[in-house]
Design a protein around this nucleic acid. Structure first.
Length: 921
RNA sequence: GGGCGCGUAGCUCAGCGGGAGAGCGCUCGCCUCACACGCGAGAGGUCGCUGGUUCGAUCCCAGCCGCGCCCACCA
């Protein structure tokens, strides 16, 4: 990792060696800032010499002979670090600061090209705001806690966490013996150490990649979601939720992943369509007067059936509501009940209510006050039969338990197969099972359908806040605007409070203990909360106030809450964490609420939503004013990239192939909110632009004549046009339309090199006319100065390089150009039309030459331009330049309504040869 | 089922009430003293479909078709 300290040690010089004598002094942020006030060369003086003073003495115009993109990234990354170019100055007040709530990428696995695009979008805005004079707070965070890391550690080291094991201080993972390849059990503290070790490596790799991308992050502000600050903030915020009654613990049915063995929240659930089977099953009425048939895809839950439900308006079942049926196989008497949610159109119109098959079951169970008979355990297997016990009534207890014995220990699929046999044998299976595809809920990271399992969890109240949260959403400035509707539809669809506890290991613990009663049973309704001043704490290690360590687990003593927080419980506090909430109130006050939340659209319902929720509850405010939402990166066939498809683009490879500036150019061409295809061609275009900037700058700076006052109408016209473009780009940037800002600038720039440079080239060389030459060079340098700054957010490396050839400090601390500044050197504003019409005629001349297949050097005997009087008058002001650029002997004008150009070519240049000459190498 | 977005040149996309555009790709040409990692030019489109509003519609309105995404208590 390039690092200022290391650099000093190895080089002995206080700043990186960048081949410029003027950089031999230690770069200072203050100096850079001072140079930011430097504007374009002033009219009437030597714009270069006057401004550069000491630089000119030391090294008059250091422009490389053969400019290249090679090596720029390493060189400037190092220099920016040493110079502290992107360091945040915390002495600024809130109004002077632009604070960004950077997304902390999951530090487990690898960064992909989607990160590259999204983070580039953020960096564009950071650089723009910084150049506009705002002090940008742009930290980086790493999201290292949570399941992805645990899973990766398990696979990487071949271990699994066993919380019952004691810590082994001498544990050496490299010496692990793994007979049978089975995972080795390690203690929770040892497991966490492994998590830290692995994420630490990833974080280094991530930083290297982001530095290469040229993110203008202040790396001193970095945090991780497992570090002490994050844990303290998470625990503090949680304690306050509990104290305010906004979080509570309860035993309740929750969505549960049987593989990870943890509760999951609504936000982490996704629907997947999978193959399934509908079975029609008969329930006998207790009075033997008939049967009620239901359809179910989960017959294995029949032992957990507590009622049948029909719609109250369904006449087919009207007389049956209130009667009792016996469940098949298990002969459990259950009532027939009515509920609005029962859909007469589905299946037979009657359904079994089980504890619990899905969320609807929970609703019915709650609304109707039904008992619970749970048969699925936390690992997803069927529990032993308990029929005959209280609450487990059966008309044939032995048969019921015998049936359960054949199901016990089986996972859903096997149990289903087994019970279908029992149903068939008993004559309860009606007709043939029907194969269907149906939608089932999955944990987004899981492989098996979710179960609904009752367990004790911590919840944050969200349902009662729907309206307030919708209003918060309306207060956010969304970029693009339509992303606000995603947030709204999510909030509207909330159906459960946020389950924030996870039965996992690698995350902030709940700063809570539970007292044990005399029987040693935890009193969950009476938690002992940690003191805020002691945070962060680990309730498994630390002892609650008023207790001694020996009382842990003993009757009358206490136990620590064994769970950890949902990863979003921490990352929903990124503004508070990065802003050192409560740890550094002075800093926090200067940052919060922040300005910008950048992110991708897939985590609106998680990260964005939860962040809004937390700020609402804790600060009664929005966490930031603006949300900039990037789209996804698709492969060239517009398919989503995934490892399984093998179409994943590795960021380091595209940097190697195209350069970081080129990759940024591609990313900047994509608008916020819209998906973008990975596009090699677009990166090549970006690379071409970067190289063109090098060459054009070199060309302009290598002209020997002294820059002078910009007096020529064509020069003034070009600057007027530039001023207009700068104004447009500024407006676009402010509207978060970076791609349009880039487009406007790029369009101007190519015209600048193709037309303007060609038009004034000869004059700029003309030593016999110093005023005319000086006007061209003055205009060229002003344009160069403005363009370097305007392109700086997009192409930080190449713009810094060309800036360094003749300017002091960093271009990234220079001021964003203003339209006035661009046109100022021309005195009064020029008329953009001179440039426009001259370029149009030049193009017409070129067209003739191209169609005649002759060299562009070919002389032109005469050109007749027909145009309106106005335009012809403007054209005359550039006709000398035009004649030189097109090698034209005479330009005639004729008034006409329609623009047209007549070109009479002269004799071809004898050395170049006409198109007929086959003199190819 | 509800919502959002998108359908414009081979590709990626801009435009949006009155001339259909850019870049790439393609074709042709040019070693023009910054750049051959370059320069110049050309060809190429009933602007998804159908109606409506308008003097006039790619652009506004309605409906339809197609694609993508988000949301939803589809037993």
């Amino acid at each position: 990792m390039p690092h200022a300290g290391q650099y000093l040690a190895s080089d002995g010089s206080p700043a990186p060696q960048v081949a410029h004598a003027r950089r031999s002094g230690a770069p200072q942020v203050e100096q850079n800032r001072a140079s930011a006030s430097f504007a374009a060369p002033q009219a009437g003086q030597d714009g270069i010499g006057a401004s550069l003073g000491p630089f000119r003495r030391l090294r008059p115009m250091s422009v490389p002979e053969k400019p290249s993109l090679d090596g720029l990234e390493a060189k400037w990354d190092e220099w920016w670090e040493a110079a502290g170019t992107y360091r945040f100055d915390r002495s600024r007040t809130r109004e002077q600061i632009f604070a960004i709530d950077t997304p902390p990428p999951t530090a487990s696995g690898s960064l992909h090209i989607g990160h590259v695009m999204s983070y580039t979008h953020t960096d564009l805005m950071a650089r723009f705001k910084r150049m506009c004079g705002l002090e940008v707070f742009y930290p980086m965070g790493w999201d290292d806690n949570g399941l992805p890391t645990e899973r990766r550690v398990q696979n990487y080291f071949g271990v699994r966490c066993d919380p019952l094991l004691p810590y082994d201080p001498g544990f050496d993972v490299t010496a692990l013996e793994r007979p049978d390849d089975a995972p080795v059990a390690v203690s929770r503290p040892n497991f966490i150490e492994l998590c830290e070790r692995l994420t630490d490596e990833d974080e280094k790799a991530f930083e290297a990649l982001f530095r290469r991308l040229g993110l203008s992050v202040d790396w001193r502000q970095s945090y991780t979601t497992i570090d002490e600050t994050s844990r303290r903030a998470s625990q503090r915020a949680f304690l306050r939720l509990v104290r305010r009654g906004e979080a509570y613990t309860a035993e309740a049915p929750t969505m549960w992943d049987v593989d990870f063995r943890t509760a999951v929240a609504q936000a982490e659930i996704e629907d997947r369509e999978i193959a399934g089977t509908y079975y029609r099953v008969a329930f006998d009425l207790e009075d033997r007067s008939g049967r009620i048939e239901i359809e179910t895809s989960r017959p294995e839950l029949i032992p957990a059936c507590v009622a049948l439900v029909v719609n109250p308006a369904d006449t087919r079942y009207a007389g049956l509501v209130g009667s009792t049926v016996l469940t098949p196989v298990f002969r459990v008497p259950v009532p027939v009940v009515a509920h609005e949610l029962a859909d007469p159109e589905r299946g037979t119109g009657a359904a079994q209510i089980c504890t619990f098959g899905d969320v609807t079951d929970v609703v019915w169970w709650r609304d109707l006050g039904l008992p619970a008979r749970v048969v699925v355990r936390r690992d997803g297997t069927v529990a032993p039969g308990r029929f005959g016990e209280p609450g487990w009534e059966s008309r044939d207890v032995d048969a019921a338990n015998a049936a359960m014995a054949t199901l016990e220990g089986k996972a859903a699929k096997q149990a289903r197969k087994q019970i279908v046999e029992l149903l068939r044998d008993g004559g309860w299976l009606v007709g043939e099972p029907e194969q269907v595809r149906h939608v089932v809920k999955f944990y987004e990271k899981g492989d098996r359908p979710l179960e609904v399992i009752s367990s004790r969890q911590w919840f944050v109240k969200t349902l009662e806040l729907k309206e307030a949260l919708l209003e918060r959403g309306r207060q956010i400035f969304w970029h693009p605007e339509f992303m606000g509707s995603r947030y709204a539809s999510w909030v509207e669809g909330l159906n459960q409070d946020w389950a924030v506890s996870r039965q996992r290991y690698y995350g902030p613990a709940f700063p809570v203990w539970f007292p044990l009663d005399d029987a040693g049973e935890p009193r969950y309704d009476d938690p002992i909360l940690a003191d805020e001043s002691t945070l962060p704490i680990d309730p498994q290690v630390d002892v609650p106030p008023g207790y001694s360590a020996e009382q842990r687990g003993a009757p009358g003593g206490f136990i620590g809450d064994p769970d950890v927080m949902d990863t979003w419980a921490t990352s929903s506090l990124t503004p508070q964490i990065a802003g050192r909430w409560e740890d550094d109130p002075d800093l926090f006050e200067r940052l919060f609420p922040m300005d910008l939340r950048p992110q991708a659209h897939d985590i609106i319902r998680t990260w964005l939503f939860y962040t809004v929720l937390r700020a609402h509850l804790e600060h009664d405010s929005l966490p930031w004013t603006d949300a900039a939402v990037s789209g996804f990166v698709l492969d060239p066939d517009r398919k989503k990239m995934s490892k399984s498809k093998g179409n994943v683009v590795v960021p380091t490879e595209v940097f190697e192939t195209h350069s970081a500036d080129a990759v940024r150019y591609w990313a900047a061409s994509a608008r916020l909110g819209y998906d973008a295809a990975i596009d090699d061609q677009q990166m090549k275009v970006g690379r071409r632009l970067a190289i063109k900037i090098l060459n054009a700058s070199r060309f302009v700076l290598s002209m020997e004549a002294a820059p002078g006052q910009v007096t020529e109408p064509l020069d003034r016209s070009m600057l007027a046009s530039l001023g207009r473009v700068v104004g447009e780009a500024t407006q676009m940037f402010e509207a978060y339309e970076h791609s349009k800002a880039l487009d406007a600038l790029e369009r101007f720039f190519w015209g600048f090199t193709d037309d303007y440079l060609e038009l004034v080239k000869q004059r700029a060389y003309d030593t016999r006319r110093p005023d005319a030459a000086g006007s061209a060079i003055g205009a060229l340098r002003t344009a160069l100065d403005v363009l370097a700054r305007a392109f700086a957010p997009f192409l930080p490396y190449v713009t810094e390089e060309v800036w360094s050839w003749w300017r002091e400090g960093s271009v990234h601390r220079a001021t964003w150009p203003s339209p006035i500044e661009a046109t100022e050197p021309a005195g009064a504003a020029g008329d953009p039309a001179v440039y426009e019409v001259a370029a149009a005629v030049l193009t017409a001349v070129r067209t003739e030459k191209a169609l005649a297949k002759v060299s562009l050097k070919t002389p032109v005997d005469s050109v007749t331009v027909r145009h309106t009087q106005d335009r012809l008058r403007l054209l005359s002001q550039a006709s000398a330049d035009l004649r030189e650029a097109g090698n034209i002997r005479a330009i005639d004008q004729a008034e006409a309504d329609e623009f047209s150009v007549e070109v009479v070519l002269g004799e071809p240049n004898p050395t170049a040869g006409p198109s007929a000459a086959p003199n190819r190498a």
